[in-house]
Computed example of a mutant assay.
Amino acid sequence: MSAFKAGLAYFATVFAVGFILGAVRVFALEPLLGKLASVLIELPVILAVSWFICGRIIDAFHVPKSISARFFMGLLAFALLMTAELMLARYGFDRTPPEQLREMTTASGAVGLVGQIIYGMIPLMQVHARR
């Protein structure tokens, strides 16, 4: 149960920070630098924030160091993130799910997807990093 609650908290916290960073990226960086450069600037920032937040949440929810608990936490957070991305694309940018999937095949979309996969793996990575 702690991994479930931690996965929810990890998603919600990082999504809130990512929403703010994403707004800065879209409205401030993209007009100046383009999509790919903007994503490449944002990605290490959000991954560092994710690493920090994940560690605090793992400690707060006493998530076991087992691979299964950490995998579940990350998988839940990743699934919620993908769901939120689809909903934001649909209702925020008026993109259909196929259009959103096509966006992920662009260079900036692929870089973002790789970052999202890493985000989902951070709880698992911290099994070894925090021993």
Rank of each mutant, 00 (worst) to 15 (best):
Q100W: 12
Y10F: 13
P98H: 02
K35T: 07
I53L: 10
G18P: 07
L113D: 03
V114G: 01
I57V: 13
V127T: 11
F4E: 12
G34W: 14
A12M: 11
V63N: 10
A60C: 06
Q116H: 06
G112P: 02
L40T: 01
V114K: 00
K5R: 15
V26R: 06
T13N: 04
V111W: 04
E103S: 10
A12C: 09
L33R: 09
S2T: 06
F15E: 00
P97K: 05
M87S: 10
F19R: 01
S66M: 00
F11I: 04
G92E: 00
M1G: 14
F27D: 03
L47Y: 07
P64R: 07
F72G: 08
Y91D: 06
M121A: 11
V49P: 15
G34N: 14
I118M: 04
G115Y: 00
A84M: 03
I41W: 11
E30R: 07
R102D: 10
V114L: 05
V24Y: 00
P44Q: 01
E30G: 06
F61E: 04
L75C: 12
T13L: 05
G7V: 03
A84F: 02
D94V: 01
R95G: 05
A77I: 08
E30H: 05
L32F: 11
Q116W: 04
Q126H: 13
D94N: 13
L32K: 15
I41P: 06
A110I: 00
I58W: 12
G18T: 00
L21D: 09
A28K: 12
H62I: 03
F78S: 09
F19K: 01
V111R: 03
P31Q: 08
C54A: 12
A110S: 11
S50L: 06
A107C: 08
G34R: 14
I122C: 03
L29K: 06
V45M: 08
A3D: 15
A12S: 14
L113G: 02
F61D: 11
G120F: 10
V111E: 04
I53N: 10
G112E: 02
T83I: 09
T96I: 00
A23I: 01
A9N: 12
T83W: 13
A37D: 06
S108P: 11
S66G: 13
I41T: 02
V114E: 02
A12T: 06
G55P: 13
A69T: 03
A60Q: 07
L47D: 07
A89F: 13
I122L: 12
E85T: 00
M82E: 08
A89P: 10
L88H: 03
R56V: 01
A77N: 13
I122T: 02
S66Y: 10
G34D: 15
I117Y: 10
G55H: 14
V49F: 14
S2Q: 15
L8W: 12
A37I: 02
L124C: 11
L47W: 04
P44A: 02
M125N: 09
G55W: 10
G92A: 01
C54F: 08
L124V: 08
P64Q: 07
A129F: 10
